[in-house]
Structures are given as C-alpha cells and as structure tokens.
Design a protein around this nucleic acid. Structure first.
Length: 291
DNA sequence: GGGATTTGACCGAA
DNA sequence: TTCGGTCAAATCCC
C-alpha cells in the first residue's frame, strides 16, 4: 500500500516534531539525561521546521481528508446509551460508525485521551489479539468513545487503532484548550485543577479533577519512559534528531543517506527519511472512510 | 484499599 | 454455528 499523500506526510512531520518536543521537554526536565549531545536550540529548531513542513504541505494542497479528520464527531453514530449496556455486535468492517483508524509502528500510548481497557480477543483471521478500550470517563461523563487496537503486521510491526464514537467527556475539551494554547498539558492541568478547587467545591468536580490529574500523570510517566527508551536507542543507533540536525548543518542541500542504515523505528527521527521513504515502510497511516 | 488490567463467559449478529 | 463485542469476577499493581 502506498503512503505518500500530502496529508500523510504532514502527519509524519507533526509526529516527528512531537517527538523532538518530547525530547526537548526531557532535556529541560533532566538536563544530563542524554549527555548534552544535542543542543536545546537545535531541538527547538527541528520542532519549528517540522511544523513548518507540515503547514507547507497542508497549505499547498488542501484536501477533504483534513475535513474528515478534524470533524470526527460528525461522522460517527450515537454513543451507546449509558446504563443500557448491550453485548450485541455493533461493529464490523462495513459499519459506518467507524470514525477513522490509524496504522502506526507503535501502539498508541497517548492520543490526547485517557482510555481504559475492557477486553481482549483473539481474532479468527489474525494471528494477533485485538484489545478493546473505552474512554476512562465512560461512566462519569457518559462518554461513548471507544477504540480497538490490533497488531496487523509483524515485520515491520504495524498496529491498527480504530476509533468509534466521539468524546463527550470534559477531558476532551480541557485537553483541546490546553494543546491549542501550546502549553504544557500536565502543568496546565494542575493549574486547572487548582482553579477548579478554588472556584467550585462541587464534589463531582473535585473528584473528577483529582482522578483526571492522576491519570494524566500516569500517561506522562509512560511518555517519559518511552522517551528515555528512545534516548538509549538513539545513543546506540545514530538515527535521531541529532542526525537531522548535523546533516542539516553540514548539507545545505538537505539530502540524507538512505534508510538502509537503520531498520529500526529510530528512523522516525529523520524527517527527510520519513518523507522520502514512506512508501518503502509500508505503513498505511490514517485511512479515511472505508475500503 | 482502590483503580486498572486480564480473561473466561455471555450474548447477539451474521 | 461461528465470530467478535462486551461484561464482570479475578487478579495485579501502586
């Protein structure tokens, strides 16, 4: 399957920027974690360039895909009624309630929402099990969002996450506002929690804020561990932001070596490798609509 | 102890 | 009858 549409490249650029941003955050949190091999300024530069690339790609050729992606809630079915759980099969490959799916080389640990796993099944036509998740605020906020995650390819590993329903929980709005503002979601949530405590002592609000903060903290730890793992991998494999930065500085033409030097996921850190060799990866990112 | 995950059972659609 | 989505008790983990 070919994966070279402008939208897909833009997504890859944004993800690359996100990883560099996480690394920069790690640098700020733990200045000695990576031995100071990459200057913070260069990391910030890579982040800016990644997002600029994404903006350029999307601005050059706007597509209806973006509308489909951004308007998640408009295409879904109604969430399952709270308090009337049904075990009937609701979803299959032709069900129009499927919002969108994302194929990724990694399981998606953090996508802006908090999920609780509620089941796992072996799928007849697949060698791998499928995991079922629902929004952590399914009960508290009558949120009908769900997702499935399943490994669909071994080599290279590809995980398919399929989303259903849409988030009606407050968490979504909180996170959206925070991310749009471009601020640290964790720090900001702490602030939001304090404001909420001082502003309104409604019991539900208090318990919700506390639980959300703790859950997000857990997510942050996951990301932190992932990033630390990436540091270790980066240190041994030579494919990371450092490569991009060094190549960028030494090669005005911006040409990079072929991906054959690394078959690992650390190639994610080289944006031009991403753009030039997305097809060879065979990752099908962001299907919109159904086959 | 409380929340999250695992896993076998149940159920309904195909 | 098979398959897969969900439930809920058991278990794990912090």
């Amino acid at each position: 399957m070919v994966m070279n549409s402008p939208h897909e490249k833009a997504v890859q650029a944004i993800r690359y920027g996100q990883r560099c941003a996480m690394r920069l955050k790690m640098r700020l949190d733990h200045p000695m974690a990576d031995g100071g091999q990459v200057a913070s300024y260069d990391l910030a530069k890579s982040i800016v360039e990644s997002f600029s690339n994404a903006i350029s790609i999307l601005s050059a050729k706007p597509t209806t895909e973006d509308d489909q992606f951004s308007d998640l809630s408009s295409r879904d079915s109604s969430p399952s009624p709270q308090g009337s759980p049904s075990k009937k099969r609701k979803i299959d490959s032709t069900d129009s309630s499927e919002n969108w799916r994302d194929d990724s080389p990694d399981p998606i640990y953090y996508d802006g929402y908090l999920w609780r796993k509620y089941g796992q099944k072996s799928i007849k036509k697949s060698n791998h099990q499928r995991s079922y998740y629902r929004c952590s605020y399914n009960k508290d906020h009558n949120c009908g969002a769900r997702k499935h995650e399943q490994k669909i390819k071994d080599n290279p590993p590809v995980y398919r996450t399929t989303y259903f329903g849409h988030h009606t929980c407050k968490t979504e709005h909180n996170l959206d506002a925070i991310f749009i503002a471009g601020q640290d979601p964790i720090d900001d949530l702490k602030s939001a929690q304090m404001i909420r405590f001082g502003k309104d002592l409604n019991q539900e609000e208090v318990s919700y804020s506390k639980g959300f903060s703790l859950s997000v903290k857990s997510e942050e730890n996951i990301i932190r561990e992932q990033t630390m793992d990436q540091y270790r991998e980066i240190s041994s494999n030579d494919q990371d932001c450092q490569d991009v930065i060094e190549e960028d500085l030494s090669s005005p033409s911006g040409s990079y070596p072929p991906p054959s030097s690394s078959g690992s996921e650390s190639a994610d850190f080289n944006s031009d490798l991403l753009f030039d060799n997305l097809d060879s990866w065979g990752y099908d990112q962001f299907y919109f609509g159904l086959p």
